[in-house]
Design a protein around this nucleic acid. Structure first.
Lengths: 231, 231
DNA sequence: ACAAAAGTGTTGTTACTACACCCATGG
DNA sequence: CCATGGGTGTAGTAACAACACTTTTGT
C-alpha cells in the first residue's frame, strides 16, 4: 500500500470555470481576476473553483460566481466544454468544465478589487488555457446570435433598436444595420414593441420605439437554415 | 483524520462515454452494450469507461472504444457534454463526459457478443442517463448535417448521390431529395465528382456518377447563415 | 429651416425547394 | 421500346443586405 492517500492519483480534481461576457461601453468584455498565488501568479484567470460533493457543475459555477458578481445578473448560463489535458495545470491533475455566462449591458454588478472586465479582443496574458476558453466562449456567442434569441441575455429588459444594434455590433465584432436587424428579429418573432417611445436627446431626432424580447429564454429561431424537411 | 482514504469523498470519478452512430441498412443506429453487472444489470449502456491518469478524455474514449470496435473505423469524434448530476450513478460520485463518434455506413466492424447496434429511434431501456445522451448526440449530428461537411463521416469513401441521399434521410429522419442535395453540396464545394460511374443494377437505369467528399475533416460551410458581416 | 436620429419602401441577391422534363441503361 | 433510375433545367420562394427616401424631433 502506498503511503500517499488512496484516490489521490486515480481521481482527478474537477473545477468549474465561467466565461462571463457583457457588452460594456460598446466593447465585449470578459470577467477575469488576477491570481495572487502561484502557479501563474499575477496572470489573469477565469472565475470558478472546485466542484463540491453533492452539487452539479452548474450549481458549482453559480456558487463560485456568487463571490465575484451578483448571480441574479446572470441572464444565461450554458456549458461550453470540458478540458482534460493532463498538464493543463502543471501542479496537479485537474479537469475543468467551462461555462458561458451572459450579463445584460445595463447591469453594473459590484466586483472585488482583484477582478476586472477585460475587452475580449485585447486579452492580457492569461493563466493556464484560459485565453483559449475565452475565445471559445466568444465564438459560441457569435454563432448563437445568428440563429437563436440569445441576444436577450446581453440586452436590457427594454431597449431601442439603436441600442440593440450597438450590442450586436460589439458582440459580433462587425457593423450591424439597425434597419435590417429590426426586420430580421421582428420577422422571427423574437422582438415585440412595448408601445413606449424613448424621447430624443439634446441633438434632436425622431423618438425611438422601445422593444423587448418576447421571451427571456433561449429559443432556436432558424433550426433548418438548410436541408429543411419537405412541406 | 478519517480512516477512509483521503480524496475518496472530495474527488469524483470521471468516465468518458461515446454515442457511436452509424447508418446501417438505412437506419440510424447507436452502439450499445448490455450491462452484465449491477447497477442496472441487463440494461443497455453506452460504451466507455474510467479516465486514467496521464490521458486526455479524447484519448480515454478512444482507448475504451478499442475494446468494442476497431477505432480506425471512427471517422469523426467530438465532445458533446459533461454530466454531473450527483445521483446519476446511484452507487458513486461519478462525472461523465460524452462524445459523439461517427462510423461510415460501409464499415462493419467486429463487435463483442454483449454489444449491439440499436436503432436510435427505438431505444431499448437504457442505464443511468444514457438514453438522453443518445438523443443529444443524434440532435448534434442533425444540426451539423445542415451547416457543415460532417456527412463525410457517415458516408463511404466514394458513393452515388442516391446512396448519400439515403444516408442523409436516415440520419435526419425525413425524406431528402437527391436532386437538391447534390446541388447544395456541390455549390458549397463539399463534394467532387471522381469521374467514375457506377454500373446500373439488373433493373436497368442510367449509371450514376460517383462522388467523394473533398475533405475528410469537418468544415463549416455556412457560418453566417444570417447576420453575415457587411461586404 | 435644418441637422439628427428613427423608421419605411424597394430592389437585388442568394440559397434554397419543387417539379417537369431529358438521358442512359437493361431486359 | 419501355420501365427504371439518374441527371438537368427552370420556376417559385424565403430570408437576407443595401440604400434611397420619409418621418419626427430639438435647436
Amino acid at each position: 500500500m502506498s503511503l500517499k492517500p488512496a484516490g489521490e492519483s486515480t481521481r482527478p480534481l474537477h473545477a468549474a470555470l465561467a466565461v462571463v461576457l457583457q457588452v460594456r461601453e460598446d466593447v465585449l468584455s470578459v470577467l477575469l481576476w488576477r491570481r495572487a498565488l502561484p502557479p501563474d501568479e499575477g496572470a489573469w484567470a477565469l472565475p470558478g473553483g472546485r466542484l463540491s460533493p453533492g452539487e452539479t457543475l452548474a450549481e458549482s459555477i453559480r456558487r463560485h460566481l456568487e463571490m465575484k458578481v451578483d448571480v441574479r445578473e446572470l441572464a444565461h448560463l450554458e456549458q461550453l466544454e470540458t478540458l482534460s489535458e493532463p498538464r493543463r495545470n502543471p501542479h496537479t491533475w485537474e479537469l475543468a468544465t467551462a461555462y458561458l455566462g451572459l450579463v445584460p449591458s445595463d447591469a453594473d454588478p459590484d466586483i472585488p478589487d482583484d477582478t476586472r472586465w477585460q475587452p475580449v479582443d485585447e486579452l492580457p496574458p492569461t493563466a493556464f488555457d484560459h485565453g483559449a476558453i475565452v475565445l471559445a466562449g466568444r465564438d459560441r456567442l457569435r454563432g448563437k446570435l445568428s440563429y437563436t434569441t440569445i441576444g436577450f441575455a446581453l440586452a436590457p429588459e427594454t431597449f431601442t433598436l439603436a441600442e440593440l444594434r450597438d450590442i450586436y455590433a460589439a458582440a459580433l465584432g462587425h457593423d450591424v444595420s439597425a434597419t435590417n436587424l429590426k426586420r430580421v428579429l421582428l420577422r422571427r418573432g423574437a422582438l415585440a414593441a412595448t408601445g413606449e417611445r424613448r424621447i430624443s436627446g439634446s441633438a434632436g431626432g425622431r423618438p425611438a420605439q422601445v422593444f423587448r424580447y418576447r421571451s427571456r429564454r433561449l429559443e432556436i429561431t432558424d433550426p433548418f437554415a438548410a436541408l429543411r424537411p419537405p412541406t
